[in-house]
Nucleic acid binder design. Sequence first.
DNA 1: CGCGATTTGTGCACGCCTTCACAAGCGCCT
DNA 2: AGGCGCTTGTGAAGGCGTGCACAAATCGCG
Lengths: 246, 246
Amino acid sequence: MSQHRHGSTPGEAGGVPAFPDLPEATIARLPEYLRALHHLAETGAETVSSEGLAAAAGVNSAKLRKDLSHLGSYGTRGVGYDVTLLVDQIEYILGLDKNRAVCLVGVGNLGHALAGYAGFASRGFRVVALFDADPKKVGERINGLTVQHIDELDRVAAEESIAIGVIATPPGTAQAVADALVAAGVTSILNFAPGVLAVPPNVDVRKVDLAIELQILSFHEHRKASLTALPGGRTAEADNQEAVGS
Amino acid sequence: MSQHRHGSTPGEAGGVPAFPDLPEATIARLPEYLRALHHLAETGAETVSSEGLAAAAGVNSAKLRKDLSHLGSYGTRGVGYDVTLLVDQIEYILGLDKNRAVCLVGVGNLGHALAGYAGFASRGFRVVALFDADPKKVGERINGLTVQHIDELDRVAAEESIAIGVIATPPGTAQAVADALVAAGVTSILNFAPGVLAVPPNVDVRKVDLAIELQILSFHEHRKASLTALPGGRTAEADNQEAVGS
DNA sequence: CGCGATTTGTGCACGCCTTCACAAGCGCCT
DNA sequence: AGGCGCTTGTGAAGGCGTGCACAAATCGCG
Ligand SMILES: NC(=O)c1ccc[n+]([C@@H]2O[C@H](COP(=O)([O-])OP(=O)(O)OC[C@H]3O[C@@H](n4cnc5c(N)ncnc54)[C@H](O)[C@@H]3O)[C@@H](O)[C@H]2O)c1
Ligand SMILES: NC(=O)c1ccc[n+]([C@@H]2O[C@H](COP(=O)([O-])OP(=O)(O)OC[C@H]3O[C@@H](n4cnc5c(N)ncnc54)[C@H](O)[C@@H]3O)[C@@H](O)[C@H]2O)c1
């Protein structure tokens, strides 16, 4: 240990304000560091060097150090970072110590999988409510929760202080669901439906679109194929496209 | 500079090489433009202005024009962009005209939902094989496909020319699955298991981690709460946890 | 045929992010 | 106590991405 104020309240050590405004790019990487740190903690490591943690998180070590330096000075030169201290610090910054309440709207194919996913609870979130518009779905029990009708959203959101909503409904209804969530006081939305959502400026939206991810991969496939074929001839890729019927 | 040759082979018009090296940021947005264009095409629009398309895709119009300019000169000043021409062009660049074969490994909670997802086929991909290591899963039929044992991966990948693999197995086995995919000739991986995958440099990996998305949202919740709390009031946030000392 | 309205394509400046390189700080060993 | 090796934290430089602002190009119309 050192004469740093270790062990004090997270977010109040060092000379850094309780809420530094971190670069977006840094914020996006903190969860990755956190996951790597949890993994390290399980293996019994007490400290970790920037080099080691960077490797575990798949980033450059200089980038990691700069990211962490934005949180304050929580490392010890010549030694590294205290794992549990850093975990607490990152969890505090990310607001994960609040055990945030999350609701899920749309218990279909995808929503069903999400509702049963254990990875939310283990990483700081509680799924506290499931909603659907289909009367046949309402009442169904999944993983200890009962699916409620979307009309209950306002009431339940207020009761449970839900600030984060997940949309897993068809694209056509996503905007309406988003509007309902906003009206119910939700200020952060994770959207799985393809398309752009319009929301007030105080509401944050992140989207996950699997087709987009695949299309980006497809581009790189295309690029790789065209590189190996550069001499200007036909590529081995061209014969792949045929109707497949089904 | 050069005569336009609209209607000719995609990728060979204008004075732009068949494969311009696009900025990563542009590549990531092309799928969004493509989705917006498909939507416009369904509504019967023949042309669209950069302003209109940008709004539909949720970006700045200057950014959109710059992105599209990298593909070549496919707009008409004073008019806008020809919708179907632009669709063809973007699909060509992304390599979607190849109707790429995709395999899915891990038919559990999430994998089951993915296997039944219609959004892949409609956006340029064919899911041609499902794999799992659990003998109880092997043989199960989902959406017209039969789950095969992971040991069949090599054979099937070769037969079907699979270049893209999706990993939906538990985190502990993700690296082993990735290794198997690479050994089978897959050069692009979409990974749903939390964690970092090590792959050869010629293989592209994209990851989707829902917990990370939620944690980023959580950070902004935390930030928003601390901002509104600055004037000295207590916030709704503080009661879930113990008070913040000092 | 020429003119004004419209919209693209892009040069440019600015800010963010990444990466390098190294001084400062820390612990350990002698 | 002092020196040595290791690691953090950061100044500086370079690259990338964004958005503005405008010239060039095209169309419609009188
Ligand atoms: N299934 C996947 O693997 C997958 C993958 C990527 C993206 N998506 C996207 O996720 C969304 C859901 O996909 P899915 O396969 O689960 O579809 P789904 O049709 O199986 O489920 C949609 C559910 O939403 C409910 N719903 C519809 N309108 C509603 C409303 N207004 N309020 C509340 N609930 C409503 C429906 O009753 C249904 O239960 C879609 O937008 C899809 O494009 C799905
Ligand atoms: N369920 C979700 O909503 C969700 C959300 C986000 C991320 N994830 C992640 O996706 C992954 C899958 O989640 P899940 O809920 O579907 O888990 P799951 O346990 O339901 O399914 C995993 C499947 O993978 C199979 N499997 C295990 N080892 C394998 C191997 N070596 N080769 C082939 N198949 C193998 C298992 O037999 C099982 O069928 C996990 O890494 C999870 O963290 C899931």
